[in-house]
Amino acid sequence: MGDDLNGPEYQVPEELRSHITITTLDRIYNWGRRSSVWPMMFGLACCAIEMICVAASRYDFSRFGMEVMRPSPRQSDLMIVSGTVTKKMIPQIVRLYNQMPEPKYVLAMGACASGGGPFKEGYNVVSGVDKFIPVDVYVPGCPPTPQALLNGLIKLQEKIDTQSIRTVRWYKREASEPIPIPILGPDLIDPRDIPILDAKRASVVKPDVPENS
């Protein structure tokens, strides 16, 4: 048991440190979760190659308990959005996110996943996956080097450490709402925007509607 498990507010005699640890429930709960974050085996673009390198022998994220990459969203805790998110792909990404069980985390790897990246101006590119799903950690870089990704994963572990069992979303009585899946229309349609779109159409006064600008 590492020192990180022992609560700083409790004094354990030196000779007993390897046998006894006094901690809070939050701490041991988070310690368990942060040491077994299973990422989804899910690659999008260039960054996915660096993600594979992180899984491979040189950077080896099994040192953080993350080596169990799950091909199924049902078994994974972390979605590493590694690469450019396109309009054609975002319905699937949202669906995968909805299928992941709580607690779930999203790490946006690289410029493209964070905010569109160099391809932001493209007609088929979503400018940041956080337009659709909540993101916990952003890792800048194009692509981030494996060590930068590891840094992001450590940041994620730090975030997990700050959560408390009393306030976390997934123990609330009401179930969390799934995110509505975007539709591929003449362009990408976010179902959450449909009321706005309808309202706009109802109140068309100007001939040059802003949707087309």
Partner: peptide, 9 residues
Amino acid sequence: DYELASYDR
């Protein structure tokens, strides 16, 4: 410096 990960973009 590549260690730039952040929580809020």
